[in-house]
Design a binder for these strands. Structure first.
Length: 800
RNA sequence: GCGGACGUGGUGAAAUUGGUAGACACGCCAGACUUAGGAUCUGGUGCCUCACGGUGUGAAGGUUCAAGUCCUUUCGUCCGCACCA
């Protein structure tokens, strides 16, 4: 038989579509498996990263179907977002048209890979039905006060009249028009993710099947730190304000405070602004207009406000500064500064000649002169706390503050509330209406759909500029009112899409039977989503749970983060010109070759270096495998065997070892490369013998193993020889894995000196006898002082 | 700076978790069969050595009968976060 991938692949892809082969069963008694690869953004064409992502997921899905599970393996489209608007600007094509044409094209591309997706459950997040369900959630979140409005500083491009995300600001300039970005205070919508901080942090421990790397990244992102929060009383009131609070993780250094510093946005600064000399005011304004990211690159700078606060313990007078390194949205936007024990404070104090007071000293050695001593040590010059170690002092000082009502031990987090409004057209409208008499109220007539007749120029928000869209009536009082023109961050859509797939009709139901389908059993995607998407989806799951919509707290039971696909050592990208087009590979070699290469070349979590020769090797393997079918007979069950030769037994053993490895690989290690290697070993074993029954049995089993990996050719061969009866659970015959003879390495003093072959039931004494004969040359004239026999492994003789 | 991962042949990688290092492939070498086929098949292939043998998992130590695997130090590569008080 000659391998003709294109014919075979076309045939089975057609068959699968016509037979609706991959729809999950309803009301099934079977155990479920939910396999999901992260859905793609419909950018136009699939790339090798997609091929890898969906091949891995498909292998899981097909494996579990064979094992008798009811498998949900869906696909959808993350179809809102900026690229559609950029395409609209560049090519004067409507975002909707561009998006849905891309989806149609990419759907065909994915189909050509033979992926076993449910057709019924496919949807795009820009579908108006999806928008409607999402808006219902958003309104409930608004009513529950999880969604709220607040003013905040944002990156504003004065030319394009739009807010930019941090990653769209390049060197302080707009990525599109190169205009200097300013910070603009605007009203934005936020989701109160900080209400769930502790749960998001604590539940990471309930995710043992997530890579620890991802859990650690989320933990760092949440950024919990423990410390002391206390107030500095101002010596004179500023307006109505007579104090400000600070947070420190180093209460043990509190006697070393020589100044305090406020963020430029701090209320005290705003209150004093008009009274300050022109140059100081200008400096504050300038820093306020600088993004956090840029502030981080600036030198430490500040100005003295001319006001003083009282140290809570020493009662000394402490000057109050404004500094560019103090962030308004962490802690309370103010810090106590200890230049002797903090690098930033040190740098600042050096620059402005502020005094440094050392209060923590190293347990051994000298205090450094040219830098801050930031490690723990022993306290001195610290009143009653002198002599304590830093860690003890931290506890005692916090207790002292609490006992005297001066402050309290608190936990602080880096995680901020999630800003979800975007001033863009191609997104889900926030379904709120602003009414002069009723305030901001939810729209009752959902969905709030996007208007089609828009002009997209990149300047301003097209919804804002639309002549009629935003004008509506108040759903409460019926008077004229204005729609919210912000749309939702696209991460909102991808935070709950995994539940939408459980709906058997995605147009009618937001969420289906999650009692049955529960969380995703295998979630596969790129490590680049380690924080944002995966954190937001975890958050949204908890929200939906609290709204009574799902029964679970975590959406993804098992997470597999795939490595990147590289070419010539670098990530494939158009700008580098090192891309490999999946369509070209499929038309040259077929989908099965592409799938086999991708799974064989590297374990899925590692980077995969694309290698044309390797692809060729995968193709050759399939060709050779198909050619070997000449040794196989058509049967409807596995042949039975009597006495077998050594080679025949070896071949059978290799075949069943591969079968057992399949369970290990799909269930635990996910190293498909070793599974394929096992299949290759089995074929090499089969080739060393001529028994047609052994070949037939081997083919029966190996096709079963290979079907999740190379489904088209495996199904074709299975149909031809076995009527596809071999796609199910195959048990391992008793004794087939046993060896007649085992080989043991023989070492003397840990160095390998020989090898022996014995039958597995050979006694330890006999093994030692043979071993000693084999390596007698190394034993002559020496005394054996220890004999170690490791069953099935080796013999080690220790001599002197 | 902080956090994490990883260093094994010419290349991609294995190694049942402390037990015969380099499975399985790619490449390369030799041969066979062919005559234009994406060829195929057989054998060989860590390094040094004609060989006996020696040596070998980034480097250096250590623990152990035994270390790619555990510990210490060190060098290098990659990733994430980064003025978080």
């Amino acid at each position: 038989m000659v391998y003709n991938p294109h014919e075979v692949e076309k045939k089975w892809q057609k068959f699968w579509v016509e037979n609706r082969s991959f729809e999950p069963e309803e009301n099934s008694e079977k155990e479920k498996k939910y396999v999901l690869s992260m859905f793609p953004y419909p950018s136009g064409r699939i790339h090798m990263g997609h091929v890898r992502n969906y091949t891995i997921g498909d292998a899981f899905a097909r494996h579990y179907r064979q094992k008798g599970f009811n498998v949900l393996h869906p696909i959808g489209w993350d179809s809102f977002g900026m690229p559609a608007e950029n395409a609209a600007i560049k090519n004067r094509v409507h975002p909707k048209k561009w998006t849905y044409e891309n989806i149609d094209y990419m759907r065909k591309e994915l189909q050509s890979l033979g992926l076993s997706f449910s057709k019924d459950r496919e949807f795009a997040t820009s579908d108006v039905e999806y928008t409607k369900f999402e808006q219902e959630f958003i309104i409930e979140l608004w009513n529950r006060k999880i969604l709220y409005k607040k003013r905040a500083n944002l990156n504003w491009c004065p030319h394009d009249l739009t807010i930019l995300a941090n990653e769209q600001v390049i060197d302080g300039k707009c990525w599109r028009c190169d205009t200097e970005i300013v910070q603009k205070e605007m009203e934005q919508y936020y989701l109160r993710i900080t209400d769930y901080t502790e749960e998001l942090l604590g539940d990471l421990e309930k995710l043992p099947n997530w890579p620890s790397q991802v859990r650690i990244m989320q933990e760092n992102w949440i950024g919990k730190s423990k410390g002391l929060k206390f107030r500095f009383k101002l010596e004179e009131k500023v307006g109505e304000i007579d104090n400000f609070s600070v947070f420190t993780t180093r209460p043990d250094t509190i006697f070393g405070v020589t100044y305090t510093a406020l963020a430029p946005e701090h209320p005290i600064v705003s209150e004093l602004l008009d009274t300050l000399p022109e140059e100081k005011r200008a400096w504050i304004e300038r820093v306020r207009n600088t993004s956090n990211r840029e502030r981080a690159m600036m030198d430490k700078e500040g100005i003295e406000l001319g006001i003083f606060a009282k140290h809570p313990l020493t009662k000394e007078s402490i000057p109050v500064w404004v500094a560019n390194f103090v962030l308004i949205d962490y802690g309370s936007g103010a810090v106590m500064a200890v230049p002797a024990h903090d690098e930033r404070d040190f740098e600042f104090a050096e620059k402005y000649g502020v005094e440094k007071v050392a209060v923590v000293f190293p347990k051994s050695g000298e205090l450094p002169k040219d830098k801050a001593f930031t490690e723990d040590g022993i306290l001195q010059n610290s009143g009653d706390f002198s002599g304590l170690t830093s860690s003890v002092a931290r506890e005692s000082i916090i207790s002292h503050f609490e006992a005297n009502a001066l402050g309290e031990g608190v936990e602080n987090y880096k995680l901020r509330d999630w800003g979800i409004s975007r001033q863009r057209y191609w997104g889900a409208p926030i379904p709120l209406v602003h009414c002069d008499s009723c305030g901001t109220v939810p729209e009752t007539n959902l969905p709030v759909a996007l208007p089609d007749d828009v002009e997209i120029t990149g300047e301003g928000n097209p919804l804002e500029k639309h002549p009629t869209w935003k004008h509506t009536t108040c759903p409460v009082c019926g008077e004229d009112a204005v729609r919210e023109t912000d749309t939702l961050d696209t991460f909102v859509q991808s935070s709950w899409y995994q539940f939408h797939y459980t709906a058997k009709n995605p147009k009618e139901e937001a969420i289906g039977d999650t009692k049955y389908w529960g969380g995703v059993d295998h979630y596969i995607g790129g490590i680049e989503h380690a924080i944002l998407h995966l954190l937001y989806a975890r958050f949204f799951t908890k929200l939906l749970r609290d709204m009574g919509r799902v029964e679970i707290s975590e959406p993804f039971n098992h997470l597999l983060t795939q490595g990147m696909v590289l070419k010539d050592g670098a990530k494939m990208s158009k700008s580098k010109g090192n891309t490999v087009d999946p369509d070209a590979i499929i038309s040259e070699y077929g989908a099965d070759t592409a799938r086999l290469f991708i799974l064989f070349t590297a374990p899925p979590t590692k980077e995969l270096e694309w290698n044309d020769r390797g692809v060729d090797g995968a193709f050759k393997f399939l060709k050779r495998f198909v050619a070997k079918s000449e040794n196989v007979d058509e049967v409807s069950e596995i042949p039975k065997f009597g006495e077998l030769s050594k080679e025949e037994k070896f071949a059978r053993r290799k075949v069943y070892e591969a079968l057992n490895r399949a369970d290990e690989v799909f269930g635990k290690s996910h190293t498909f490369n070793t599974l394929i290697a096992g299949v290759m070993e089995a074929i090499n074993g089969l080739e060393k013998q001529q028994n047609r029954d052994i070949w037939t049995e081997g083919y029966w089993v190996l096709l079963n193993i290979l079907e999740p990996i190379v489904p088209h050719i495996a199904t074709e061969l299975s149909e031809k020889f076995f009527g596809r009866r071999n796609f199910g659970i195959i048990s391992t015959p008793e004794g087939v894995l046993e060896k007649d003879e085992i080989s043991l390495g023989v070492s003397v003093n840990g160095k390998k000196r020989g090898e022996i072959s014995v039958s597995p039931d050979t006694s330890k004494e006999e093994i030692l006898k043979v071993a000693k004969e084999t390596v007698h040359k190394w034993l002559d004239g020496k005394n054996i002082i220890k004999e170690i026999v490791v069953p099935n492994r080796l013999v080690n003789l220790v001599v002197k």
